[in-house]
């Protein structure tokens, strides 16, 4: 592939340099993190993920990063690109300052190169009872839901579990037990869904009111800024705080 790459580079009108973080705990020479530089041909429409794939397939097959859908729906390739959390597949190279610096997500343990350990993120997501719960179901037909209510939860249901928000959050970086924006948003998705009923909503508010829940958020908006699905995370967290206060007053 190297020969093909040389030919591609020669034909290319423009080329761009990537500076990519490398680390492998068991390979000599990679145990100490370093940056490798790759020069790849630039084409209109090229994304950061395309550039990484080119570098891997033509120069170094050991270059490792998660990716699958190439269309911002699988949430695999959140990366730290030029100092900001972004999805590789959803970021046009033309929008970035060159050379482009690509690192794994901060505040997560690096497994290898650009791959980070996602377990902690998954644990937080799964700790908020992230599944629909109700006692009453009509038999043989759907539950009713108003358009307004569906609209209300719409943005919150768009999360693709990419973890960009968690990585950008200072509070999460300092408090490992903090639920983090994505998990709180998941709780919001159910708490605000009228199909679950009032009692369940109480229960859900109790979950997010725990010590490492909504009250930790200091409304810095970093999560909202990086979310590739434009979910108004900070707003959702604020709304849950207000709901929690309201429901506490009710029982006063």
């Amino acid at each position: 592939m190297r020969e093909r790459a040389e030919a591609n580079l020669k034909d290319a009108e423009e080329t761009v340099k990537l500076k990519v973080f490398r680390y492998d705990p068991e390979v000599e020479g990679k145990k100490d993190p370093r940056f490798d530089t790759f020069r790849v041909p630039f084409k209109k429409g090229m994304t950061v993920l395309d550039a990484l794939i080119f570098a891997r397939d033509h120069f170094d097959s050991s270059l490792t990063f998660r990716h699958s859908c190439r269309q911002a729906i699988c949430g695999s390739d959140a990366l730290f690109v030029n100092g900001r959390q972004r999805l590789g597949c959803k970021t046009q190279m033309s929008e970035l300052e060159w050379p482009v610096r690509i690192e794994p997500l901060p505040h997560a343990e690096v497994v290898k190169d650009l791959v980070v350990d996602m377990e902690h993120f998954y644990d937080q997501m799964e700790s908020v009872e992230p599944y629909f719960q109700t006692d009453e179901l009509p038999s043989g037909e759907e539950q009713k839901q108003t358009r307004e209510n569906r609209e209300k939860v719409k943005m919150s249901t768009r999360c693709i579990w990419c973890s960009a928000c968690m990585s950008s959050c200072n509070i999460a970086a300092g408090d490992n037990e903090y639920l983090g924006p994505a998990a709180i948003n998941k709780a919001y998705r159910f708490a605000m869904d009228e199909r679950e009923g009032e009692a369940m909503k109480e229960h859900r508010l109790n979950i997010i009111e725990q010590e490492h829940g909504v009250w930790r958020c200091q409304t810095q908006f970093s999560c909202t800024e990086v979310c590739p699905k434009d979910i108004p995370l900070t707003e959702h967290i604020q709304e849950l705080k207000r709901e929690a206060v309201k429901s506490n007053l009710k029982f006063w």
């Binding site: 037909e141 759907e142 009713k144 869904d193």
Partner: peptide, 19 residues
């Protein structure tokens, strides 16, 4: 499909609240 709705899938809705 009804089962999915019962599991909470956020289907688009009509004015009468049905999927």
């Amino acid at each position: 499909v009804i089962q999915l709705e019962h599991w909470g899938m956020p289907f688009s809705r009509e004015d009468d609240g049905r999927v």
